[in-house]
Design a protein around this nucleic acid. Structure first.
Lengths: 212, 212
DNA sequence: AAACAATACGACCGGTCGTGCTTTTTGATT
DNA sequence: AATCAAAAAGCACGACCGGTCGTATTGTTT
């Protein structure tokens, strides 16, 4: 494995740019993101930045991909440390809300912002977002299915329905935490799922008695 | 009351412009909305349009207000025809989802789109949106409280919590109906609330047996 | 040492944006 | 018919946008 100092430098610039782009996109939108703004924030020239992707759309697509990676690292991976079943479901919900509460992204949730921004704008970016959304939904449903398979949820539970409700509680927390009282929003998101899971799960010891 | 044909003409232009602005804002965003685009869509000149508000921000604020009126007319008013209690709660949820399904707005929900767009952009527009969001939340909680007062929901129900969950089911329907399968999204939003209310309401005859 | 390739840069293009300034059209008043 | 104000249009401006181009810098290869 050769270490080319030139491409290493380029990689560093690219990654730093995409990380900044994810943050900026939740503030001014994925479309509102401008090369000049991003270049300023990074202290590099606009054209130098532009050369890395060749078009704004390519940069936007790369930004979406980077956001997916960050979601994987900061929300999904921590949740996977919990054992399969309702505990993992609960851990994912917690990790998601913790991520919002940590204010890593000013807008709360990159995907919710971008999805609403592009849900009426056909094109490659919308397609990429829809694909990521589909995978996220499928992942949620997988976790629910695992809980059913482990006997921690009744066999007749509507998997897609429960996954929908979990997602809904989380998205709304991202939304309300930025416009209304954040703590109230997080509390409702947590309490909502805890109530739901405790009502479904036959083993009460798998879940906390109350939200922290 | 004198009817001045000139100001009447101005009013007509203004209203038509705001209606178009609400639609356009759910496509390209409230910030992305441009005077030239709006003027083109209406067949008037950019400067003539501009003169009605004096600034873009004033136009944006007026657009938010118009969206509030439309929400009142198309979602809240129809729901208020149902009797107080769980039936009105259910009617509101239905009216909201019907509104999304009718594709009146390409983006689904003006407020969800605008709220995510501005939740990290301080300023008068964000303030106006937050105010409208607060009123909407308070309205939902009032409807829940009425249902409790009517004995159609248990007295110990967490009012704000239930209102949060109802809102969450609706917002997520707006989001998913544009990126994933619309009918599935509407079904989950409806089934979610129906399950919830049927579990809480002592009188099963007040609610439909299944979603339509 | 010479040739080469990956970054990065500053200057610049055509185009669109919001906005101000001036003029024309339109409808009410006398 | 003459006067006047509201509405709409025409025009120009400075700022910013995405994108192109030629060039300088830097590190690798031979």
């Amino acid at each position: 494995m050769t270490v080319d100092g030139r491409v290493a430098r380029g990689d560093r610039t690219r990654t730093a740019a995409l990380d900044a782009a994810v943050v900026l996109a939740t503030e001014v939108g994925l479309h509102g993101l401008s090369l000049a703004q991003l270049a300023d924030a990074l202290g590099v020239s606009k054209s130098g930045l532009f050369a890395h992707w060749g078009s704004k759309e390519a940069l936007q697509l790369a930004t979406v991909d980077r956001a997916v990676e960050q979601q994987q690292e900061r929300i999904i991976r921590p949740a996977l440390r919990a054992p399969r079943g309702v505990r993992r479901l609960w851990a994912l919900h917690q990790a998601r809300i913790d991520f919002f509460a940590a204010r890593v992204l000013p807008g709360g949730c990159f995907f919710a912002s971008a999805d609403f921004e592009y849900n009426a704008r056909p094109g490659p970016i919308r397609d990429r977002l829809a694909e990521a959304f589909g995978r996220w939904t499928a992942f949620l449903e997988d976790l629910v299915r695992e809980a059913v398979a482990a006997g921690e949820l009744p066999a007749d539970v509507d998997v897609a329905q429960l996954a929908y409700e979990i997602d809904a509680l989380g998205i709304t927390a991202a939304m309300r935490s930025r416009l209304l009282d954040p703590d109230t929003a997080y509390r409702h998101a947590r309490q909502g799922l805890l109530n739901r899971l405790r009502a479904l799960c036959p083993d009460p010891t798998l879940l906390p008695e109350g939200i922290s």
